[in-house]
């Protein structure tokens, strides 16, 4: 099995932990794994991404355009930004909650997040929209959006890993007092 996965969002949203969880789970299964991440200035509220390549045959961690099996997007606009990387028939899991850039707030640019969702609906057949606000309300925490998205990714069938494998990886990285919240987040779907 080999999978190319892209995680994307805005600096500070927790894409790195999610990518780390996938990688640990893959390692446990003895799958070769290579990843590349945005570190540095862009982390200050800029667009960030992680590329993950799981399985045999990858010579570099970078995924070429049109070759991602799955995009896990923490933000609608960022999903659209990364869409050229999706292969035909690939899956997208996206959080519906936009992060407004400062430039849009002070009127120096425009950002219409609902247009992003519409565009994704038109272009992607295998699309899962995660209502982040509802999830946060029901889970009483907005901190586990990354895990909620991972759960949706597992159910999309394109992650190449199952829930128990991610659970195990999570337990190794997350302090025990947060296990329950994370398990509920992983299972959450509306």
């Amino acid at each position: 099995m080999s999978k190319n996965i892209i995680l994307c969002g805005v600096g500070g949203q927790g894409t790195i932990l999610a990518s780390r969880l996938i990688a640990s789970a893959a390692m446990k299964k003895n799958l070769p794994i290579k990843t590349a991440e945005t570190i540095g200035m862009a982390q200050r509220g800029g667009s960030v991404f992680s590329h993950l390549r799981m399985g045999e045959g990858a010579n570099s961690p970078m995924i070429a355009k049109g070759e991602a099996d799955l995009i896990i997007a923490f933000e609608p606009g960022e999903a659209v930004r990364q869409l050229p990387f999706l292969k035909k028939g690939g899956a997208v899991v996206v959080s519906s909650r936009p992060v407004m850039p400062v430039s849009a707030m002070i009127g120096k640019s425009v950002y219409d997040a609902s247009a992003m969702i519409t565009y994704l609906k038109e272009q992607v057949e295998h699309l899962t929209i995660v209502d982040a606000d509802q999830a946060a309300q029901e889970l009483h925490s907005s901190k586990t959006l990354n895990v909620v998205l991972l759960g949706a990714a597992i159910r999309s069938g394109e992650l190449g890993l199952d829930a128990s494998e991610i659970e195990e990886a999570m337990k190794e990285r997350v302090p025990e007092k947060f296990w329950d919240l994370n398990l509920r987040s992983l299972a959450w779907s509306k």
Partner: peptide, 23 residues
């Protein structure tokens, strides 16, 4: 270039502009 050739996406709506900012 195979993958690239297959992705024929229409022009997306204006993407959010996100230069890095002070926290």
């Amino acid at each position: 270039a195979g993958g690239i050739a297959e992705m024929k996406l229409p022009e997306p709506p204006a993407l959010p502009v996100r230069p890095p900012v002070l926290c």
